[in-house]
Simulated scan of single mutants.
Amino acid sequence: EAGERELEFKLALAEFHKKIKEAFEVFDHESNNTVDVREIGTIIRSLGCCPSEGELHDLLAEVEEEEPTGYIRYEKFLPVMTKVLLERRYRPIPEDVLLRAFEVLDSAKRGFLTKEELIKYMTEEGEPFSQEEMEEMLSAAIDPDSNSINYKEYITMMVIDEN
């Protein structure tokens, strides 16, 4: 059984390495095993991870050179990203959990929240969003005709497929 688990682990590792390499190569425009540091967030998200800005910052500190060059080398990125995937860090929140959270906010059970309600919850509760983050999110979430968010549709659109 231990041997079987080891084999599974090696297969998972090989699969992660392949995915990481493919995601990295998309942004390795010079084909020299480096990417612009500004692309790292996109690469990480394309691998199904959703780190916060703070977590992304910490991750960058791990993969950057001693003297930051503005570029990240594949050799440094691969082991750190493999560890992130193995530990299932920064997983997106499951759909049912998101839905329950919205339903709590929608106390009248209407199936939607108005733009005003959404702004209120986003700015008064927990870690406040910046004006820029708010606008970016609202433009994606709010239906311009009704000026509200149908959260069931929004969640479906937002949740990244696990496959």
Rank of each mutant, 00 (worst) to 15 (best):
A2Y: 04
L56S: 03
A101T: 05
F112T: 06
D143Q: 07
Y151E: 03
I72G: 01
E87R: 14
A140L: 13
K10T: 06
G111V: 12
D96H: 06
E103Q: 15
V104K: 10
V35Q: 01
E117V: 05
H17V: 00
E1I: 13
V80Y: 05
T123F: 08
E67A: 12
I43H: 02
V37D: 02
E1G: 13
R73K: 14
R89V: 07
F9N: 08
F77Q: 02
H57C: 11
P51H: 08
N32V: 14
E4N: 13
M158Q: 12
M81L: 15
G3D: 09
A14V: 05
E64I: 04
E4Y: 07
T34V: 15
I43S: 02
E67W: 12
S130I: 04
N150I: 11
T42H: 09
S139K: 12
K10N: 11
K115S: 06
I43F: 03
A61F: 03
K109Y: 14
N147C: 07
E116Q: 15
Y71C: 12
L118N: 11
A2N: 06
N150Y: 15
V63S: 00
K19H: 02
V37T: 08
H57P: 04
K115M: 06
K152A: 10
E67I: 14
K115F: 06
E4C: 09
K19E: 00
D58Y: 04
E30A: 15
P79H: 10
I119K: 13
A12N: 14
P128G: 09
R110Q: 15
F27T: 02
V97H: 07
E25Y: 00
G48I: 00
E127L: 04
M122E: 07
I142N: 02
G41Y: 14
L98R: 01
L85V: 05
N33G: 15
P92T: 12
E55R: 04
E75G: 10
F129A: 02
F16H: 06
L113E: 04
Y90D: 07
L99E: 05
E153W: 05
P68R: 07
E117K: 10
L113Y: 04
K115P: 03
A108I: 03
E136R: 05
T69A: 09
D28P: 00
D58T: 09
E8A: 06
E153H: 10
I44A: 01
H29D: 13
I119Y: 06
I20Y: 00
L118W: 11
K83Q: 14
I142L: 08
E125D: 14
C49P: 01
F16C: 01
E136K: 06
T34L: 04
L13N: 14
T69C: 07
E65W: 03
I142C: 05
K152T: 14
E65A: 11
S107N: 15
K18S: 03
S130M: 04
E133S: 10
L78I: 08
G70L: 10
G3L: 12
E1T: 13
F129Y: 09
R5Y: 01
E95H: 03
V97C: 08
